[in-house]
Design a protein around this nucleic acid. Structure first.
Lengths: 200, 200
DNA sequence: TATATCATACCAACCAGTCGGTATATAATA
DNA sequence: TATTATATACCGACTGGTTGGTATGATATA
């Protein structure tokens, strides 16, 4: 209670910010809404964060680290065949998109779209996160390609970017439809594309 | 000047709203910014539109109609082979994405992401526009499939949705990177996927 | 004159952020 | 042990500025 209560408050603020900003975006989300949702007052909020943008960045970082850890620790990671890891990764993302964890979309995509033209530093932050994400997937794609299709002339970097585009775009459609089915279907199309590239 | 200036005022407001909301989103764009950009005053603004949301909807409708017309009147439409029309369509979207017309992204995707959870009617509007868009592409896909791969078991509807997802998601990446190259590359990947489905 | 177009002044609500203060806990000191 | 000091956690009233929208009036056109 004494020592384990302290971080909880900050976590509550981060959680509230995540949910609200995922739903309504950065601008439309009020500091007071976040405070109400986290059951703290504004004085408390500004004790932990310099301001709204500071909180947004902290939230984005936390989400990204959480997802990175989840993916890195997933069972599919220990598959010996690199191509299995590629498919395993896509399957895991499909699974995660259908669970209620990412039921609302992707905060990274949200911020990239909303803030890129107004918050230059946020734009750079988003671009960097996208780059890290891309590179981690590309690493597996490279290994799979070296083993399965070394002669093929597709670019693994742009293929990894394509995957992220598919996912982020599908989230948009899913949001307007209130149904995550599109995400799954679109990622399955991407998987089909991978099969055509790797000769299954 | 006299007669050609009148409709221009409303168009200027629509144009200003399009540019600003594409860059900053609906919420972060103020009506005063729109008025300043369109070089009119607020009194004038509220003469033409009931409010900010009314303007947003009008802008979205105008953009959609404009793009529909552009695509419907494009030369590729008269190609006799349905599969050529499919590829022609993708090529045209690639071309448009690289030109300075859609250099900022897609207002439909923007609104869908930002307003789906707060403006129910806007969510429905966006979902309907997405549906119209999907169906128009699906029509060509159906014809191409009937001719080239009638036995194949892919779903043309979900394939058309996949295309839109690719495009919208690539716009997000492009925005954070300030470079539309990703859009072209991702759409080329989609084209490769189509080739694998139709056996070229 | 009547109507459409546009301008100016204004308002109530809302917003991010500030500020002075309280409560609690640990630690240093006497 | 009692007391003082210091730091962290939290509260809620307040502020300066912004926002969407209104009220009213001027001008132009038909």
């Amino acid at each position: 209670m004494t020592k384990s209560d302290k971080p909880v408050t900050k976590e509550r603020l981060l959680d509230a910010a995540h949910h609200l900003m995922l739903a309504k975006g950065f601008t439309a989300t009020t500091v007071e809404q976040i405070c109400t949702s986290a059951e703290v007052t504004k004085g408390c909020f500004f004790h932990y964060f310099k301001g709204k943008e500071d909180l947004a960045r902290a939230t984005l970082e936390r989400v990204f680290e959480y997802k990175s850890r989840t993916l890195a620790e997933a069972p599919y990671r220990s598959l010996p065949d690199p191509l299995d890891r590629v498919y395993g990764y896509v399957d895991l993302v499909i699974e995660m998109s259908q669970s209620n964890i990412a039921q609302q979309g992707c905060l990274l995509g949200n911020f990239a779209m909303e803030l890129s033209d107004t918050h230059e530093d946020m734009r750079v932050t988003c671009a960097n996160f996208f780059m890290k994400w891309t590179e981690s997937f590309q690493a597996d794609l490279d290994q799979a390609k070296a083993q399965e299709a070394p002669e093929a002339n597709f670019d693994t970097l742009s293929l990894a970017e394509h995957f992220i585009a598919v996912l982020e775009g599908a989230f948009i459609l899913a949001k307007s439809r209130r149904d995550m089915k599109v995400v799954k279907e679109s990622l399955l199309h991407f998987k089909g594309y991978l099969r055509s590239l790797f000769g299954k």
